[in-house]
Design a protein around this nucleic acid. Structure first.
Lengths: 152, 152
DNA sequence: GGGATTTGTGGGTGATTGTGGTTAATTATA
DNA sequence: TATAATTAACCACAATCACCCACAAATCCC
């Protein structure tokens, strides 16, 4: 399971270095074959090892086309799914289209999220984090049932 | 279960020595593998033995991505969860980002909190403690039902 | 109380990692 | 087919980190 946080730069060619602590695992999981796609729920990207992506793909195939949310998620994720490979320096190239969707500027944040990574524009991410911390801290907002019962 | 209190210094590189009385236990629990993440409820950090963190992670994995609050909790807790290892001197390195979240200066406080440790900036902690003692002393705040029936 | 040991703190150094750039290959376009 | 644009492979530098050693303060033990 992937976890953890890094700030990385996206260079002028749209390349992003995957933090080295993950590389070995990515190589042994799928020989460094990765799938990058958009996150249909946020303005960010998801990066899967190929083997994990294949599981996702079969889950998506199971979603009914008559459920609108499901259909859209399917379209987005599959439609934008891009194969990529770690280069010699452990970087991936993020296609223009996907960079635009996530609003990726010079600095990006990469978050380990279990079976995948999530990639955000650095500023967008800090904004989101601050807002969330504020919400949670207010201590008046209504936590969802799932959260209320969560003991950490 | 961890308990107790220590004041420790954070050196210029952001390292913090785990009090030696805990080290043996941390090593036997998870070979000195620890996970440091942010405490979303306060400006402080949580330090888990890896084995304890894995329990938390599986709780988080159960939250739905289609529920916004659940998704955010997952992103934040997992995203900031940083693997660390005790170094030869029994220290951990606290990443810049996490230090910033907790406002960690030169002196830190580490509190045993059951399945984890809580790490505070020393000044922030004393302030909080004093405020809390003052609040409770006033005896006017409304304790929740759960607290009212608590005998300590 | 005094010596020995453990513990916390600080710093130096070499290896690793992230980043930027250059050149060659491939693909697309005119 | 030639040219432009894009992508891949390669190299080099700079910042960071892990590892090591050294010292001082606290603690333990006789």
């Amino acid at each position: 399971m992937f976890r953890g946080f890094s700030i990385l730069s996206v260079d002028s060619k749209g390349r992003l270095a995957v933090p080295s602590r993950y590389r070995q695992r990515l190589i042994s999981l799928s020989e460094g074959n990765l799938v990058l796609t958009l996150n249909p729920l946020d303005r960010s990207l998801w990066l899967y090892p190929l083997s994990e992506w294949e599981l996702i793909e079969s889950k998506l195939a199971g979603l009914s086309d008559f459920d609108k949310q499901g259909r859209r998620a399917k379209q987005m994720m599959r439609g934008y799914a891009t194969d990529c490979q770690l280069d010699g320096q452990g970087r991936i190239l993020i296609p223009q289209e996907l960079r635009a969707h996530a609003g990726l500027g010079r600095q990006a944040v990469i978050l380990g999220q279990g079976n995948k990574f999530e990639i955000w524009d650095e500023q967008a991410w800090s904004k989101l984090r601050d807002e969330w911390l504020y919400e949670v801290g207010k201590d008046s907002g209504e936590p969802s049932d799932a959260l209320k019962s969560l003991s950490l």
